[in-house]
């Protein structure tokens, strides 16, 4: 992860009146697993399609190894794509689908044969050569699509919500498989998804997007623990967002009528801020021992934990805990300074 392979410089894209990308700046490094994460319509797929060459940007530059490729047609780019619905050629069998790119490049028969066999093995489809692609399961079609892209040895592999059509169990399986493949071939993966859990578990870097703007770039841990704004906090996992907190001074934040020690600094004195409290970071304690008090409004069993809503004077808090508390019980809420995440107001 040292050299930049792709640089997006103030990329914009308009579809008619609508501006779907409002200035994207992003560096993508060699051998990185980068995920573009966001709700539908946030511009993540458009960004990917611009890198692939299926869309031309309205403004800005796409640098590939330092060279602007925004005018280079898709078929001349050193990237390959795994499409959302796989886009396998229905009139070709598994082998010929995978061999398509190499045949276009007029490689020798023995070279093609060796590469295709090797790649099919990599994705776990040994011996599927002659199978009709339209009769394969979703997971198998997915693997063919990955093999068809990887066999060309691209420098960057683009994946457009490739797991969207698979069921939950298969998805999990493919997630770790994809990660394994990426490590094995050692190239950059750019992965588009709207599933935050998928993004957090696979990526080296997560890019959270909304309404054509990058909200935050960071490691999965950073994104989860230190969301930069309310959108990121709300989109990544469940959270309690307190929109009306005030930063008294460095390391001291005030909300719900109390001052709390925190670990954030660098804000102006008395700046209005927003605070995120993750449901699993809040403990339910005796009423006497806490600043914030309330009563249990509801409790839902979720398998591993209970999901409890505590009603307080200012707002409802969502709490995840393995302990059971009866509805109507008066309780106190407690959290440490490191559990409080202060964000700039949007």
């Amino acid at each position: 992860m040292h050299n930049k392979i792709i640089e997006l410089k103030h990329l914009t894209k308009n579809f008619g009146e609508q501006q779907v990308l409002k200035g994207i700046d992003l560096n993508i490094y060699e051998n990185e697993f980068l995920t573009l994460l966001g709700p539908s319509g946030c511009g993540k797929t458009t960004t990917l399609r611009i890198i692939a060459g299926f869309e031309e940007p309205s403004g800005g530059e796409v640098l590939f190894n330092g060279v602007d490729i925004s005018k280079v047609p898709a078929y001349k780019r050193e990237v390959n794509t795994v499409f959302q619905k796989y886009a396998l050629f229905p009139f070709l069998n598994v082998y010929d689908n995978v061999a398509f790119g190499l045949k276009i490049k007029k490689k020798s028969k023995s070279f093609i044969d060796e590469k295709v066999k090797k790649t099919l093995k990599l994705v776990g489809l040994e011996g599927f050569d002659k199978r009709n692609v339209t009769l394969l399961s979703g997971g198998q079609q997915q693997r063919v699509a990955i093999a068809r892209a990887l066999v060309n040895e691209p420098k960057v592999l683009l994946l457009d919500e490739p797991l969207g059509a698979l069921d939950a169990k298969l998805r999990k399986e493919m997630q770790s498989e994809l990660k394994k493949i990426q490590k094995e071939v050692g190239i950059t993966f750019i992965f588009v998804t709207h599933d935050q859990e998928e993004a957090l578990s696979m990526s080296d870097t997560v890019v959270v997007m909304n309404e054509g703007i990058i909200q935050q770039i960071g490691s999965p841990v950073d994104i989860y623990n230190e969301p930069e704004n309310r959108f990121v906090a709300g989109f990544i996992g469940e959270s309690n967002i307190i929109p009306d907190a005030v930063m008294k001074r460095d390391l001291l934040v005030s909300f719900d009528g109390f001052d709390f020690d925190c670990v954030d600094k660098g804000f102006k004195e008395n700046e209005e801020v927003e605070v995120v409290l993750r449901p699993e970071d809040i403990d339910i304690v005796d009423v006497e021992n806490s600043k914030i008090k309330g009563k249990v409004k509801s409790i839902i069993f979720k398998g591993v934990h209970y999901e409890i809503v505590v009603e307080t004077q200012y707002r409802d808090y969502l709490i995840h805990t393995t302990d059971y508390f009866e509805t109507g019980l008066h309780v106190g809420l407690s959290f440490g300074p490191e559990d409080i995440h202060v964000m700039y107001k949007m």
Binding site: Y75, N80, F83, K85, A87, F100, N152
Partner: peptide, 22 residues
């Protein structure tokens, strides 16, 4: 399906090749 055409371009086929092969 337009994504099949895009897939052909993606795999290195120019417009003429895409027409005859896909």
């Amino acid at each position: 399906d337009h994504s099949l055409i895009e897939a052909a371009h993606d795999l290195g086929a120019n417009n003429v090749q895409t027409f005859f092969k896909v």
